[in-house]
Nucleic acid binder design. Structure first.
Length: 933
DNA sequence: ACCGCCGGGTGCC
DNA sequence: ACCGCCGGGTGCC
């Protein structure tokens, strides 16, 4: 009985599945499962069409008073003015039109009277309208109670709804102004309920612009807040914390251990009231633990979170250094911990961490985990009187056993201590920074990490396993940062759940202190790749949805159920209701901590960074270099002019990029431009071998140009890149999965051309090392740019021999070429490449950060490697080698375009949207500028 | 009386 | 439900 330890609403589904054999069971239970845990968003199972989209564009058709009957058969109770949910019950034995009425908690209250249920069933089943209810006088009814229903739907469905109701003798009251937002309607007497409606404003519909500005206003005073309490990190934290990090720590610890009543809840005469829905219950709502740390990039969220994990290690107490020392010093870290390879999620893994089993997507509700045995499971039907009561389930217990380890008690759902911190780098945080700016799915996924702790066993005391889920791109950053910030004498079991030989042993995993994994690993098990064809809503809708999934993860009642979120916050906000906007703001204030780089603490800026000075160094090519440059340029120019004449510039975009790339390479060093073969050959006329070679070259161009290194399917950096015959590059596993699932007529996700596995061309093994050697064999020569660099470096060394510099280029071969003169001039340097294994990276960073004499003063950094989350605070100078502007070259033209764009951005903030053809024209013009056409 | 009226049994879907 | 509805009991004044 896999679903037994889910909460009421799922339990209710289980019951209906048993009694009625509901065919949709597998569909909505899996959805319900995700929404219970808020992982939905991260597993990309959201955006199921036909739900949100319908609700977001809905208008109010009108209202109707009806009756709820059969109250005495159910336990669900309702207060005056409390919202209720109407739910179809197509498998009801007595009436296939049955419509259930549930309270906010999901407990059934009764049914809609059958005469009304008949048209309602038709309307609901055909999705003509969403029907919502509020019970005006709910408290004292023994047999029936009135319910005020609102019908929301698309304008085009309005007449059908009115007609159907009329057929059955019902007539909608037209929407009154004060019931505009679906609650706080006209029948509410003066005393009742919170003042949701804003009659004065409700009449006028906000324009999109007005809504945007209202929405932006919400976030203005969010930055500076009274979250000023500071807290020292535990001993185990090896890095001193900055004041704002101590504040973050204090705030997070207080949120982790919060005993406060959650937001929107009040205690009144021994009852707990939800002020949004008017729901009340005797039981205290669960504490909302955790929140959103939405600081700007670079303020040290990762460090703050590590500090949190160590400081609030278990039961609000820190990880004790002494204990760990004596206990575990002899323990050798599991060598698997730092292995990073492609892999799949297992049920066992999540189970071990206290997530409920993922179950099957069929009606089979047995857990698929062989070593989890049901220990006891009781369903008691308490028929104390003639009236049946809702069945109650005892919490099931599970025993996790494995061959080698002793059995231990395991309470999956209940032991989850639900404390979590959500770190946001570019997702919701960027929505906070600029809420109405477009939020790409891609950006959204980039930095978000979810930190979730789980108790290791069911005793109250004792350590927890902390699960960190983050994108692959920052996984290594997390590992680095743990290395950096935990005192070296502290031994923590950190396990990276990634790689084909990862341990699936629940006993092993549960023994870990920290487990790191990625969204993709989590998601891969579901084979969900529908993200390719997303229906993107408006930015505000998206950020509201993002927020909902976070809230759902935090388990803030009643928002775990999307309906209540939608009715109380999302729709009012989308309709521009002031009350809704206010509620949203207090919500965000309550659960997020956000500082920007310009935030201040006690009058001082959060981060005192030295002023950034940018110098543009101009370089003149030697005559020799200029000659080569000109000849390649002329050749390229000729080809591109031909494309212009044919009107096929954009069709040959890769070739154009290739020309530009070669020119940029020539600005750096003549040896960089190895492949001078002209771009004029046509793919269509080649032999298979030639075709293959061309595709490989194209792929290398894409990979080295730095313009787009991400797979459009997984949105992560390319893993085993392959190129299709239509010249698009994806991760091999990603595209293979697409082909597999679309058989037999798979199409390219980007251009819909035909796809075949045997047509995929793999990238030959990383040439860099071997070609490096080749270039080493070739006689080394300098270049104007290298000369300029060396001149600057030597100058700098004269002023201060200890100064540390970063030398950044996207061309790794260029970095290799720079190594020679560095050695000759006696510089000690280190290097960081994207392809370097994790261990080497850590070594390179550590030696560079070292301030002792003789430590490297220069780090050669490839752009790809330097992209994400590197702490290279030792450096005070950065040399960006490309561009490092060569006069009269493509680089100067690049600079011109950059400046022009900057002016545009600064000048016309009212950025009018460019049409697709305008975008094209801009691109064409840019190409013209670059190549002097 | 193939009615009216009475009063008990009963009650969601 | 202090209702409606059902169906059995009953029947001049």
């Amino acid at each position: 009985m896999a679903w037994m330890f889910m909460r009421d609403s799922a339990w209710k589904y289980l019951q209906s599945a048993h009694h009625g054999g509901d065919r949709n069971y597998s569909h909505y239970t899996s959805r319900d499962f995700y929404s219970q845990f808020g992982l939905e968003d991260f597993l990309c199972t959201d955006d199921i069409p036909g739900t949100d989209e319908d609700m977001d564009s809905a208008v109010l058709f009108g209202t109707l008073r009806g009756n709820v009957v059969g109250l005495r058969y159910y336990t669900g109770v309702v207060n005056n003015n409390e919202m209720v949910a109407l739910q179809r019950e197509p498998n009801n034995l007595y009436d296939k039109n049955a419509v259930k009425v549930n309270n906010v908690n999901g407990n059934q209250v009764g049914h809609i009277k059958k005469e009304l249920a008949a048209p309602l069933a038709y309307i609901m089943d055909n999705k003509l309208a969403i029907v919502e209810g509020v019970v005006p006088y709910g408290a004292q009814n023994a047999f029936t109670m009135p319910v005020q229903m609102s019908f929301w739907g698309k304008e085009e469905n309005k007449q059908a709804v009115l007609d159907k109701l009329k057929m059955h003798g019902f007539k909608l009251a037209p929407p009154s102004k004060s019931s505009e937002f679906g609650f706080g309607s006209s029948w509410v007497s003066g005393r009742a309920g919170p003042s949701y409606s804003a009659p004065g404003h409700a009449a006028m519909q906000m324009t999109t612009e007005q809504l945007k500005s209202e929405f932006d206003k919400l976030f203005e005073d969010l930055k500076e807040d009274d979250k000023t309490h500071e807290m020292e990190g535990a001993e185990a934290v090896g890095t001193p914390l900055l004041p704002h990090q101590k504040q973050a720590l204090a705030w997070m610890v207080s949120r982790e251990n919060s005993k406060e009543l959650p937001l929107f809840w009040e205690e009144k005469n021994n009852f707990y009231y939800n002020t949004l829905t008017n729901f009340a219950e005797k039981e205290r709502p669960e504490n909302v633990l955790g929140g959103i740390l939405a600081d700007d990039m670079g303020l040290g969220k990762t460090l703050a979170t590590i500090a949190l994990i160590l400081t609030n290690f278990h039961d609000g107490k820190p990880l004790s250094v002494e204990k760990i020392k004596s206990d575990q010093l002899h323990k050798v870290r599991d060598p698997r911990a730092f292995r990073l390879q492609g892999s799949q999620l297992t049920h066992e893994f999540l189970e071990a961490l206290g997530f409920p089993p993922l179950g099957e997507t069929s009606c089979n509700v047995e857990p698929s985990i062989s070593n989890v045995k049901e220990k006891s499971e009781t369903v008691q039907s308490q028929c104390s009187s003639s009236r049946p009561k809702r069945a109650k389930a005892e919490k099931p217990k599970y025993t996790v056993s494995s061959d080698s380890e002793e059995s231990e008690e395991w309470l999956p759902q209940q032991t989850r201590t639900a404390s979590c911190v959500i770190q946001e780098d570019t997702g919701f945080a960027s929505a906070l920074a600029s809420p109405s700016a477009p939020l790409k799915k891609k950006a959204k996924k980039k930095g978000t990490a979810i930190v979730q702790s789980v108790k290791k066993n069911d005793s109250e005391e004792g350590p927890r396993t902390t699960l960190i889920i983050c994108p692959l791109s920052v996984l290594s950053n997390w590992i680095d940062q743990f290395e950096q910030h935990i005192r070296p004498d502290v031994r923590l079991n950190i396990y990276v759940y990634y790689g084909p030989d990862r341990s699936k042993d629940p006993a092993f995993i549960s023994k870990q202190d920290i487990v790191l994994t990625t969204y993709n690993i989590l998601a891969s098990d579901y084979g969900v790749f529908q993200i390719l064809f997303l229906i993107l809503g408006t930015p505000i809708q998206n950020s509201l949805k993002d927020l909902w999934s976070l809230l759902s993860f935090l388990k803030l009642k009643p928002f775990t159920d999307r309906e209540w979120w939608h009715r109380t916050i999302q729709r009012p906000v989308m309709l521009g209701d002031q009350g809704g906007l206010r509620r949203l703001q207090s919500l965000i204030k309550n659960i997020t901590l956000r500082r920007t780089k310009t935030s201040k603490i006690k009058g001082k800026p959060v981060l005192e960074l030295p002023e950034r000075k940018v110098f543009i160094q101009h370089v003149t090519l030697t005559e020799e270099e200029r000659k080569i440059y000109q000849s390649v340029k002329n050749e390229g120019k000729a080809a591109i002019s031909r494309y212009f004449n044919e009107g096929t510039v954009l069709a040959h975009y890769a070739d154009v990029l290739g020309v530009l790339l070669r020119l940029r390479q020539l600005c750096c060093h003549p040896h960089l431009c190895t492949n001078t073969s002209s771009s004029s050959c046509q793919i269509g006329y080649s032999t298979p071998e030639e075709l293959r070679e061309k595709l490989v070259n194209k792929m290398k161009l894409v990979l080295s140009s730095g313009s787009d290194e991400e797979c459009a399917i997984c949105l992560d950096s390319l893993n085993l890149p392959v190129i299709t015959h239509c010249a698009h590059v994806f991760c091999k596993p990603c595209i293979c999965e697409v082909i597999q699932s679309e058989q037999p007529n798979a199409k390219c996700p980007l251009c819909r051309n035909e796809l075949r596995v045997e047509h995929l061309v793999e990238c030959p093994l990383e040439e860099s090392d071997s070609s490096l050697e080749k270039k080493g064999d070739r006689e080394w020569i300098s270049s104007s740019k290298i000369n300029a660099l060396m001149h600057a470096l030597i100058d700098l060394r004269k002023q201060n021999p200890a100064v540390k510099c970063l030398i950044v280029s996207q061309f790794t071969t260029f970095l290799s070429l720079i190594e020679t003169p560095l050695k000759e001039s006696g510089f000690v340097f280190t290097r960081l490449n994207g392809s370097m294994p994790q261990k080497k990276r850590v070594q390179a960073i550590q030696s560079f950060q070292d301030s002792q004499k003789g430590s490297p003063t220069i780090m050669l950094l490839s752009l790809k490697a330097g992209g994400v989350g590197l702490n290279l605070t030792a450096a005070s100078r950065v040399f960006l080698m490309d561009p490092f502007i060569v006069k009269n070259s493509v680089e100067e033209n690049m600079l011109k375009i950059q400046n022009k764009k900057r002016e545009l951005a600064a000048g016309a903030f009212a950025s009018k949207k460019l049409t697709a053809s305008e975008v094209k024209q801009t691109k064409i013009n840019e190409i013209k500028t670059l190549i002097d056409l």
